[in-house]
Design a protein around this nucleic acid. Structure first.
Lengths: 231, 231
DNA sequence: TGTACATCAGTGAACGCGCGTTCACTGATGTAC
DNA sequence: TGTACATCAGTGAACGCGCGTTCACTGATGTAC
């Protein structure tokens, strides 16, 4: 067999590897990601991948970081076009962007937030900041609302500092801790709905169900709680 | 090597297999469950397992059903001792029971609600009813509150029927659909917090964080929304 | 009570498979002259 | 412009491993007489 010309079939093999890895995660789940299967799909041999990633785990880490950044981009993009919008609209937009990203990239969403991959341990010094970056977008939006004085901070049940303060100590935030609390709460709620939706727990037949409206209603209720009515 | 006396080392091998499977899931994650590893731990040979489970998938299915039932037992147990409690207290108790079960059985929780195991497809006719059974406990608690007339049903944002009605059509419920909506919403919120907590997303150092109070506050806010104040 | 026998849970070898990773290599490419 | 050469991306064989599953078997057990 004639050897194919180098760099012609795959002008950017590193990204091609990640692309194929992503599409194989969609088919078989992220836990069964295989270097040999990726190589087969790209019509190269498995050892060639080692020119780009030192090991399978490094490829997984790269995919995780990409996923965090991709989600972060989507969140930031949702805010970019809303300079004149109300704070409530901004929160709503970020929630929708979060969901739309997750629905468009379910396997990457599970890769980040789902059951950890067996025998893989994410290096916290790499994935930690990437994760916190996304959290910061949500906190930022709520922080704006707080600065605008529209966030409901009085008569609100507050967590004792445990978890909230731990986050602040680690990643830093100057402002009312209730902003972080609300961010965590909103995140939890959004994640809960998405996790159940993506993995088909809202109905016996996964494709049978339209969750859009349920999501909208729940986000609206969340906004009400935070004093950010309407849109 | 002398053959060990049958039925002496493992008087109930079927359950021993499931026990070992559960403990191996805790160590390595449910996705890497292996018949050979289970056999090794039990000091039997792998084919012996086939006397109890026709295939690996059937073992997984049995574990899933067990997990659903175990969770369901915990939920029902939380209600059994509360005959004279308020509706709010009952909802609170079920939420706490849900969380306590999940924290005590994180890998089983992920097995049920986390990323699906690669190359395994749950038979819906078996796992569907098991899942719905647990949902019914939560619906039942809220249904009681509704019958008592304390559930907030006026001025509440309601989902258009899509998803809620699909559930009702499938599993049946006679009463205000808002009860099912609230059940789904509460479930989502609880699941969101637990999924993030169990998989270590609330802090860079998983064991560093006490989520108890955060959980309590969020459940309280949820109760407020549903009109089920106090405890 | 003692003996012959059927049962069937568990064995051990084997099947075909896919995996991550290593290694010496090769040959297309781009560069230096 | 043409030629010699260094580079290094990708190859192909091999490593040791674990997996689910099948199969004919064996021998401890409990039962029937």
């Amino acid at each position: 067999m004639v050897r194919p010309k180098q760099k012609e079939q795959h002008p950017d093999l590193e990204n091609a590897i990640k692309e194929v890895a992503r599409s194989q995660m969609i088919e078989n789940g992220s836990a069964s990601l295989s270097l040999r299967a990726i190589a087969r799909a790209l019509k190269i041999t498995a050892p060639a991948i080692y020119n780009y990633f030192p090991s399978r785990d490094d490829l997984v880490t790269a995919l995780i970081v990409d996923a965090y950044n991709s989600l972060g981009d989507a969140l930031r993009l949702s805010q970019a076009s809303l300079q004149k919008a109300s704070d409530g609209e901004r929160v709503f937009a970020s929630a929708r962007a979060y969901r739309n990203w997750a629905l468009a990239h379910p396997e990457e969403y599970n890769l980040i937030f789902g059951t950890p991959i067996p025998n893989y341990h994410a290096p916290m010094e790499i994935t930690g900041p990437a994760a916190a970056g996304n959290m910061s977008v949500l906190i930022g939006v709520l922080h704006n609302a707080w600065q605008d004085g529209v966030l409901k901070t009085e008569g609100v049940l507050r967590s004792t500092p445990n978890m909230i303060q731990a986050w602040i100590n680690k990643f830093g935030y100057e402002g009312d801790p209730v902003v972080v609390q609300f961010a965590m709460a909103s995140w939890s709620q959004i994640h809960g709905m998405l996790s159940l939706e993506i993995n088909g727990h809202f109905a016996a037949v996964p494709d049978d169900v339209d969750v859009d409206d349920f999501f909208e209603v729940e986000i609206r209720a969340m906004l009400t709680r935070m004093g950010l009515e309407g849109e």
